[in-house]
Amino acid sequence: MSKPRSLVLPPRTRARSLVTARGDFAVLDTEPLGEPRGTVLLLPGYTGSKEDFLAVLEPLSEAGYRAVAVDGRGQYESAGPRGRAAYRRRALALDAVAQAAALGDGPVHLVGHSFGGLVARGAASLAPAAFRTLTLLSSGPGRVARPQRIRIRVLRVALALLPKERVWRAMCWLDSRGEEPDTDDTPELAGFLRRRWMRTRTPQLACAGRLLLDRRDGAPELAALRTPLHVVYGSDEMVWPVQDLATAAARTGAHHTVVAGAGHSPNVSHPRELTDRLTGFWERQAAPAGVRTAP
């Protein structure tokens, strides 16, 4: 999961409810600074939330973009039903299409981080006219790496057998035994992480985990899209094999970005550099034919 380094809302940002044709969703909505250049819809990953994008909201705003980060159905502060059928990828993708429509800004740039990338590519397939571009951030069309597959399987079994509080304590203990244990969480951040875990619906966690374990090759789906595609990830990515991501970018003809020194969450660790790469891609897509823009 992504772990924000600060929970302070950036300038021009408000937490609100986005009312859509498919229900209400909790969002962080950041207005652009100066002349508007577009709107960005940001979908978080597995066990994550809209707060995973806090660090990129201000630089996106400064670049002239309205940035809207959303809690998906059943994630943290967005309501979600108990039935697992509500968390199939098509249902989540339709939610993203409805969110884009509710923003009222015409086609938007869609960015999906990790699991959010699976949802995002489903949304772009269902309603390509709703999105100006699609960015898969630390998210691949292939299988996640073996250590992550094992972790997800264990988590799904634990959720089926144990109370969520016990699962949370076990996860924290396992993380503390890693090679680089997290020892600097402030009480505020630790409280937020636990609260986010406890408020995310168990069916959402179980179903999202199942989707992440899907063995199907999603590259043909991406290659068939007419929406301009950007594949971006950190050089130290560990959830998807880096070579598989590079191969997927080549197979789909996507614009390909590697953020040096970043891990699975460039949105947290390298927000300014990531923003530069995202806006550079968007500007190239908006430029008239024959006009070159900065890389």
Rank of each mutant, 00 (worst) to 15 (best):
T183R: 15
Q148R: 13
D182R: 14
T186S: 15
A129M: 00
L136Y: 08
G142W: 09
A224K: 02
L213I: 01
R156F: 06
L205E: 05
R194Y: 14
S176C: 13
R177I: 12
A123W: 01
F192S: 08
R153T: 15
V231L: 15
H230T: 05
R146V: 15
E180H: 11
A160F: 10
L189T: 14
S125R: 09
L229R: 11
L134C: 01
T135K: 08
V167R: 04
P128F: 03
G218Y: 00
R226L: 08
L161T: 03
P181C: 12
V144N: 08
R216N: 06
R210F: 08
S139I: 10
L205I: 14
R194V: 05
R216D: 13
L161D: 01
R195Q: 14
E179D: 09
L189A: 09
R201K: 15
H230F: 04
L155Q: 07
G218L: 00
P147N: 02
R195L: 07
M198A: 07
R146W: 14
A124L: 14
P181W: 12
E180G: 03
D182V: 11
E188S: 06
T200R: 01
A206L: 13
R199A: 11
L225I: 10
W197C: 05
R169W: 04
A158Q: 15
V157D: 10
A145G: 07
L205M: 14
Q204T: 06
R169L: 11
T202G: 03
R149W: 11
A208G: 09
E180W: 06
